[in-house]
Design a protein around this nucleic acid. Structure first.
Lengths: 344, 344
DNA sequence: TTGTAGGCGTTATCAT
DNA sequence: ATGATAACGCCTACAA
């Protein structure tokens, strides 16, 4: 059987309170007694207070939950997510906080409700199932939404509208012909590439991508140009292959687009490959602008012109917000900036 | 004040047991009553059983701890680690298991002992502080060590010796001149690049890298050649810049090495860049072989010849082992294989 | 099918 | 400085 604090107390002939103090509040007992207790614990193989019991009693666990919009694995695959997590973990590391990774599969929350284990939540992207959000907000624990907004919860975003605006404005300065957009999650529940046309789009509140689209459109409008929904493609996920596929479709249309505005670098990199495989030269025959500024965007030849968003810093900020280390502003919006390289 | 199961029971005029069953064991009560309870819970804003209390009572949490050898952030940065986590999370996703990421900072375990929260552990790489391992093994929970071995704990490794042997054997078939090794964590507590010389090395038990070194040496010996410790450089971490720096040092020596055996692809990619910056042409002037086969190794020009290790599969296996889904063999060793590309 | 009650292992409060 | 004791919120025999 497992040793408990009580066993140890009995063995030593002291009270459980004292043993507890020996581990958790050294100032409450004499150094000498504490020493004796710790030594005995060591000898008997007692590993310290049971974390579950302690959490129950104390009302907190030292764990922050990260609710990830996508499948868990996606977040280890996509450099955008990875860099965000990297930033979060940097702060958690410093603060001795544990990170519980929670996918947003609804079975999880609706059934098991492990969620109450965490002292707070970072919600990275809008969960597919909205009921999860209800659950989290009902807990009234410190929470931060990232890349979307939720009534009554602090949020952290980049300025997607402005970023997209920069991209489009730069793009049309260099391309006068047809423009196509490779969008990301513009349509709920899509599972494959599709031309947007008259399908209903997500709203600006719930989606980063929609705000990017609005940014593109505003810039075009200001230049007296227009973006027909038929020239917008939607990808359900930010993946190279989907970018390749969508770009291929777009580039086979007439008139062939001269500018591709892509809502992620991974889509853009796929698009570049597709163009090259069709014998097009970038940026001469086709200009491509990405979004995110992932590391590969800079390595790639031609290097990708894109919008930089500070993912790592975003992660750090999110962590600081949820831990209450950042009590200044309520909502935070970080800047996005244009990085001009070779593709446009 | 927070609602508890008891409050809900009182409100409804039923027993706490019934309410508990409504949430956790639907078959124990009439569908009708359950419905009523759930509805009332919804109405009052009761979010389901408190996870901490439930865990205390049940003795398990549905959480698996991942003890990461390095700083937490390193694991989101290094593609080798990332792909491993990706594999783990794939299985956890399916099995409705939560993943608690634990860095191996000792303060954590020695003081707070949050560790007992987990139902089991995957220990990815040897923690810097060995006492952590004592703590974990003392808990007697299902555990798996990855990339190292620990008495009494199931382990998962790739065949590092064989992999390195393949690399070296291939290398000397194409290069007859001087050979240099860019090693990884061959020396404990190193914090920067250093030439190994007569510094003491880690043992084969505790380190992947040492087994790789043995593999290199065995292959060279079989070919009647030798590897002088003066031609081995050590990097404390697998990073591009360290590879660059070490390679630069090595390539400035006389005779200039013709073959670089690198213990990670990131080191190798840095080495390639260093060589190119020195005006060397790969593979004509210098041959480079990496280890890991990270995605970039294939993209890069010249594409990197390297040893493939199935990181994703390794993650899946580790997850299956710790969850007891894999009751066949005790220890597992996965194959590594040579991928010949352009750099050698 | 539903209710009663003891205990999971701690820690905080209040005595002594 | 140390001890006694009552929670923390839930689950599960067992009884009804």
């Amino acid at each position: 059987m497992r040793l408990t604090l009580k066993d140890l107390a009995r063995e030593l002939g002291v009270s459980t309170a004292t043993v507890s103090n020996a581990f958790s509040r050294p100032d409450q007992l004499s150094a000498e007694l504490r020493e004796r207790i710790l030594a005995e614990a060591q000898r008997l193989g007692y590993q310290g207070p049971n974390a579950t019991a302690r959490s129950l009693r104390r009302g907190r666990t030292g764990i922050i939950g990260l609710i990830l919009a996508d499948r868990l694995q996606y977040n280890f695959e996509d450099p955008v997510a990875t860099r965000f997590l990297h930033g979060v973990s940097e702060v958690f590391d410093q603060q001795n906080v544990n990170m519980l990774l929670l996918p947003s599969r609804s079975e999880f929350y609706l059934g098991q409700s492990f969620d109450s284990l965490a002292d707070g939540y970072i919600i990275y992207g809008p969960p597919r199932d909205g009921r999860i959000l209800d659950k989290v907000t009902a807990r009234r624990k410190p929470s931060v939404t990232v890349d979307f907004n939720l009534e009554g919860v602090r949020s952290l975003n980049i300025d997607n509208f402005a970023g997209a605006h920069l991209a489009a404005a730069h793009g049309i300065r260099h391309a006068s012909g047809q423009i196509a957009v490779l969008g990301l999650r513009l349509i709920s529940d899509a599972t494959q590439i599709s031309r947007v046309g008259d399908q209903p789009l997500t709203t600006a509140e719930e989606s980063v991508s929609r705000r990017r689209l609005d940014g593109y459109q505003a810039a075009l409008l200001e230049a007296g140009r227009e973006l027909n929904p038929d020239w917008i493609w939607n990808a359900p996920e930010s993946r190279y292959e989907l970018g390749y596929q969508a770009a291929r479709e777009a580039l086979l249309c007439t008139p062939r687009p001269e500018l591709l505005l892509c809502m992620s670098d991974r889509l853009a990199l796929g698009a570049v490959a597709a163009a090259q495989d069709m014998g097009l030269v970038i940026p001469d025959d086709l200009k491509v602008i990405g979004f995110d500024d992932i590391p590969t965007a800079a390595y790639q030849r031609p290097a990708l012109t894109t919008i930089h968003q500070p993912q790592h810093e975003k992660g750090r900020q999110a962590a600081r917000m949820v831990l209450g280390l950042n009590n200044r502003s309520r909502d935070i919006v970080l800047d996005a900036r244009l990085i001009v390289r070779d593709s446009c």
